[in-house]
């Protein structure tokens, strides 16, 4: 690693820290300035309500409360839930994060797999019907909302298939309607992961196609062909490798949009992940959890973006920071 790389990493880490501070304070101040809190439903009034607020430290000024939150967060303690009595947020959020990462990871693999395959094939068959079909599928991909795809999948695999498929093939074909266990199994994971991954695959298809078309016109490809290399070798070893740089550039935004999409998908399929928790926390005024989940997401995205930037230098050694 050169000195430039280290300085670059240092700058990026600084940006992550600044982002975390700004985001957590913004969300903290926002949710704590909302009218109403999670204790209203307990029929507390006057002095009793004040006592509960005091117990949770909610009667203090917001900057003081935030400072307390920050001190805890640095030590890995995101505080306690207001709604689920005595539940510490850090272990809760970490468990849900692992569920979400399982789903998001599967979706990312599907996105990149489908996207790059479609993109390469479309570019190789430029301006033929194959190209038109694949690019149209890409547009459909980012036009159809993920919950539409999800309900289509549920209809097809969980409801339309008759009951006897369950007994004949076990759960291999029949899709269970209710999420089972914390992590589910590969059959359960397939539908939400496809619904989530298909949306972003359209963007990957377009970028890959454009990048491939750009690369195959260059001289070194002609040289490779002139050397007598087989077409498949040229496509995969020479063209695809160079086409991967632009694809890598959208990997960061891709991860962000998969995270956003998982909020909806987890709620449809009842997957106990971070996205479902976030919606629950915000609708039940469990604001400590809201702030915690938000902070974790911001940290995750910061690390992912840094990782993607470093991945650049691996894929394309010409890039230096």
């Amino acid at each position: 690693m050169t000195r430039g790389t280290l300085i670059y990493i240092g700058q990026r880490v600084l940006l992550i820290v600044v982002t975390l501070l700004v985001v957590s304070f913004g969300v903290f101040a926002a949710v704590h300035s909302l009218p109403g809190n999670s204790f209203i439903s307990e029929h507390l009034h006057g002095a009793a309500l004040q006592a509960v607020l005091h117990q949770y430290g909610l009667d203090r000024p917001i900057p003081v409360q935030y400072w307390d939150f920050l001190k805890g967060a640095i030590h890995g303690d995101l505080g306690n839930s207001f709604v689920i009595q005595g539940e510490a947020i850090t272990p809760l959020v970490l468990r849900e994060l692992s569920v979400s990462m399982e789903l998001g990871g599967a979706a990312l693999i599907i996105t990149i797999g489908i996207g790059m395959l479609f993109g390469v094939v479309a570019a190789m068959r430029q301006n033929t019907w194959v190209d038109y079909v694949l690019t149209t599928i890409a547009v459909i991909g980012y036009s159809v909302p993920s919950f539409v795809l999800a309900s289509l999948g549920i209809l097809l695999f969980a409801l339309a298939l008759p009951d006897w498929t369950f007994s004949l093939f076990g759960t291999a074909i029949g899709y269970p309607l209710r999420w089972q266990g914390t992590y589910g199994d590969i059959v359960q994971l397939s539908l939400p992961a496809i619904a989530l991954g298909f949306y972003t695959s359209g963007q990957v298809t377009r970028i890959t196609r454009a990048a491939m078309l750009d690369v195959v016109q260059q001289d070194f490809i002609r040289t490779a062909r002139a050397k007598g290399l087989r077409s498949r070798v040229v496509t995969i070893r020479h063209a695809l490798r160079n086409a991967m740089v632009p694809v890598t550039s959208i990997l960061g935004p891709l991860i962000v949009s998969i995270i956003a999409g998982s909020v909806v998908i987890e709620n449809i399929f009842g997957i106990p992940g971070l996205g479902k928790e976030f919606v629950r926390s915000i609708t039940s005024h469990d604001y400590n959890v809201t702030v915690g989940v938000f902070t974790i997401y911001a940290l995750l995205i910061g690390i992912a973006n840094l990782g993607v930037d470093l991945l650049y230098t691996v894929i394309d050694p010409r890039i230096r920071y």
Partner: peptide, 9 residues
């Protein structure tokens, strides 16, 4: 900073 947080959230 805005790019660093998921839009929907």
């Amino acid at each position: 900073i805005f790019y660093g947080i998921p839009a929907l959230l």
